[in-house]
Design a protein around this nucleic acid. Structure first.
Length: 103
DNA sequence: ACGGTGACGCTCA
DNA sequence: TTGAGCGCCACCG
């Protein structure tokens, strides 16, 4: 059994709330948690995310619409997003502003 | 206890 | 416009 900080649990919880075909940003996620400057910590939490398939961390991208990163490989992230209905071009989300999901 | 690192974000030049 | 630097928080050794 792993003991996870409340902060991380929040991150995973909100990440799971992201609907299919939509994406969110580290900043929005951090904002939803309550701190807008936690973007880094959020990325850290997702990176260590012990519930990888349970938490769709691939739906979380940087505030600019860039892929950002992915523990399984950024390449994989792009493919998954494409399958979800999100088009990626040059590592950026197409119509990103329109696909960003806000809590 | 401390310092360094990291899937970021914003401001300034 | 593009490029570089600084600041933010949380986690690991």
């Amino acid at each position: 059994m792993k003991k996870i900080s409340a902060f991380r649990q929040k991150v995973y919880k909100f990440t799971q709330l992201i609907p299919k075909g939509r994406v969110s940003t580290y900043k929005e996620l951090a904002l939803a948690i309550g701190d807008k400057n936690l973007a880094r910590a959020v990325g850290n939490a997702l990176n260590a995310n012990p519930f990888a398939p349970t938490v769709p961390c691939h739906r979380v991208v940087s505030s600019r619409g860039t892929i950002g990163g992915y523990a399984y490989g950024e390449n994989k992230k792009r493919v998954i997003l494409k399958k979800e209905g999100v088009t990626c071009q040059e590592g950026r989300i197409k119509d990103f502003s329109t696909k960003v999901y806000k809590f």
